[in-house]
């Protein structure tokens, strides 16, 4: 994987990284965190493709980033703030037309247990 990227970029020296392996149990954990059902028959396939992607991103480990501040936004801008004035009308009917299940103005979901 890395060698392919390196070749594409003419970058032949090999990075010293141990490849991250993702197994079935990792995928099950991630699928639970992300609330996505992954069918039993495809778990191994998904694990393999995610291992491949992680091998690509593991290239980052070779970069020297000592003292570099993380950059969350491309521009060094700061946040504008909004005046505290009501600007939104009640549009419940427009929005609830889109709801898979609603009743008495409420969105319905299977019983919430705390």
């Amino acid at each position: 994987m890395m060698t392919r990227l390196n070749r594409l970029l003419g970058n032949e020296e090999k990075a010293q990284i141990s490849e991250t392996q993702v197994d079935r149990s990792d995928i099950e954990k991630l699928a639970e965190l992300a609330r996505i059902e992954i069918s039993e028959s495809t778990v191994d396939e998904v694990a393999k493709s995610i291992t491949d992607v992680l091998a690509l991103v593991d290239q980052l480990q070779a970069a020297d980033t000592d003292g570099i501040a993380p950059m969350a936004h491309p521009l060094d801008a700061t946040q504008r703030l909004r005046v505290d004035r009501v600007s939104e009308d009640n549009r419940r009917d427009d929005f609830q037309k889109l709801a898979p299940a609603a009743e008495q103005g409420l969105y319905l979901v299977p019983k919430v247990i705390e």
């Binding site: 909004r82 004035r85 009501v86 600007s87 549009r91 419940r92 929005f95 103005g105 409420l106």
Partner: peptide, 28 residues
């Protein structure tokens, strides 16, 4: 405050359900 932290919808207490939930509050 009169409005939500990230939207211009009212924060008044006790209104009919979802009448003060705008597109931003609903995560449209």
């Amino acid at each position: 405050t009169d409005t939500k932290i990230f939207s211009g919808a009212s924060t008044a207490f006790g209104s009919a359900p979802n009448t003060q939930a705008c597109a931003i509050d609903l995560a449209m």
